[in-house]
Design a protein around this nucleic acid. Sequence first.
DNA 1: TTTTATGTTTGTCATGGACAAATGGTTGAC
DNA 2: GTCAACCATTTGTCCATGACAAACATAAAA
Lengths: 296, 296
Amino acid sequence: MFNIAAVERDTGLSKDTLRVWERRYGFPTPMRDDNGDRAYPIEQVEKLRLIRRLLDMGKRPSKVVGASTEDLLREIDALQAPCETDIAEPEDDFLRLVRLHRSDELRSTLQQMLLKQGLQRFVSETVDRLNIAIGQSWMRGELDVSEEHLYSEQLQNVLRNAIGSHSSAGSRPRILLTTFPEEQHGLGLLMAEAMLVPEGACCISLGVQTPLADIRNAAIAGNFDIVALSFSGAYPARQAVEGLKQLRNLVPDGILLWAGGAALQGKQSRLEGIRVITSLQDAVTALGEWRTAHQS
Amino acid sequence: MFNIAAVERDTGLSKDTLRVWERRYGFPTPMRDDNGDRAYPIEQVEKLRLIRRLLDMGKRPSKVVGASTEDLLREIDALQAPCETDIAEPEDDFLRLVRLHRSDELRSTLQQMLLKQGLQRFVSETVDRLNIAIGQSWMRGELDVSEEHLYSEQLQNVLRNAIGSHSSAGSRPRILLTTFPEEQHGLGLLMAEAMLVPEGACCISLGVQTPLADIRNAAIAGNFDIVALSFSGAYPARQAVEGLKQLRNLVPDGILLWAGGAALQGKQSRLEGIRVITSLQDAVTALGEWRTAHQS
DNA sequence: TTTTATGTTTGTCATGGACAAATGGTTGAC
DNA sequence: GTCAACCATTTGTCCATGACAAACATAAAA
């Protein structure tokens, strides 16, 4: 049983939204605890996550919030069919390791792939595909939370290790990486860093959850050229756009803002003065643009 | 002018809290826009940030939310004066690096100390003291969020790197490390891991925020001997005790439970069937106890 | 000194109404 | 057929006020 704050954390849907959906569409239908507060059963939270997925894919709430779980799964399958071709064997083998909790082999497999492919290709191809495979498995209920955490931890170990062995002290541009306060997921930051560091950029990550004002202060105090923000799929797109505009006003024009991640798909138009990073490769492109503009 | 969502992002105070303070204490006093929505002037947002600082230092809202800006500044000054005795020079030098955002030197300094002292001594002495020094500086307002994040990230890099270079696959005991869902801080886990790995324990961390049921599943599926939980000072002690009891009922008796961290100071008595880890050194002691009991 | 009981304080949740911004579809001009 | 302008719906966020449990402090008892 989850209270409304927990559901907000888990689904990325605001408390207000959850209450208004209940009123308008008749879903979710939480029980009540002794105190009269909403208590959401786990199945409803999972269904809400499905709905979230469909909304991100462009469906409208009125079409999906009332629907049955079966219909939702059908719709997701239908929309996923095109890009689903390619959960190839390597990913499948890998998922098996995750499901068996073979953490040592997990790590050494990742490490091996990294060595074979080099950091950038490893991240932009292998890790990118693995994340998708993991995400899909999770949606299908084939993985549980602990297995996803295990993967995430091992990947983090491998990436941090690899990034740490590049030394780019003193080089340019200086890039500050972080996320907004409500964002929990830091893997995107690490992946971005992994793409940029081999190009000779000087990346400094603050991890997740830095308040806007502190991002500003750090950007100025640390003499940064670029501030890069990451938004996971769970982050409300609207808040992301709003926050980015605000940050754009806070930091001096001389400092560029980059923003990337699943939450920003298709939002480029609304973001003036901000370079939206559309893919991991695009981060390298953006770095090239900066270099062209600043050769002197 | 900030709307209420922006102020929430900036100050970390929830919309509900902002509205209820206005009602109860007569501050803040936002203007209204054409739509009747609250519009906070920048000065009030800054004052709210001051108030936030005082609350973090232990003041109570009723004492500070109504006060004048001058009084607030005076109070902050007053609280900063004491407890200044015991920050030795090495820590002070180190803090200077943090304050200057010298992330590269920060990392190499940590790395050097680690090499000189060895992983265990580094963690149980140096890091322990640094954490305290950072905490105190933070209370005094000498550090901001971004600086604390910077320290935490660099330390994490160094620790993960060091832990990764010990290979203890296949050894015993197998220890699962993680935290409860509401816990945000993962440094404690890393520090514990750093104490245990050199002793030959096989540590697997799931990172923070694993639901109880998933901890149970992972513990059983991964064939673990011990499950270790970490609780930062910010975690409500009562919830920790409650959750630990519940977890004790979920996992088989054959699997030991260890629990440590600031939130558990003085709570040993209430925790039957759980080994409370009172310090980083004590983790090593507890490991010795397990070995004595399981030599065969 | 430590534990237990008793008031206060404080953050979060509930309800139901309102509205602006976003979206989808339709019409008419080029 | 494409594009722009228009209108109707949809949708998320905000508001006001009331309520209450958990956290906290303080006083009394062991």
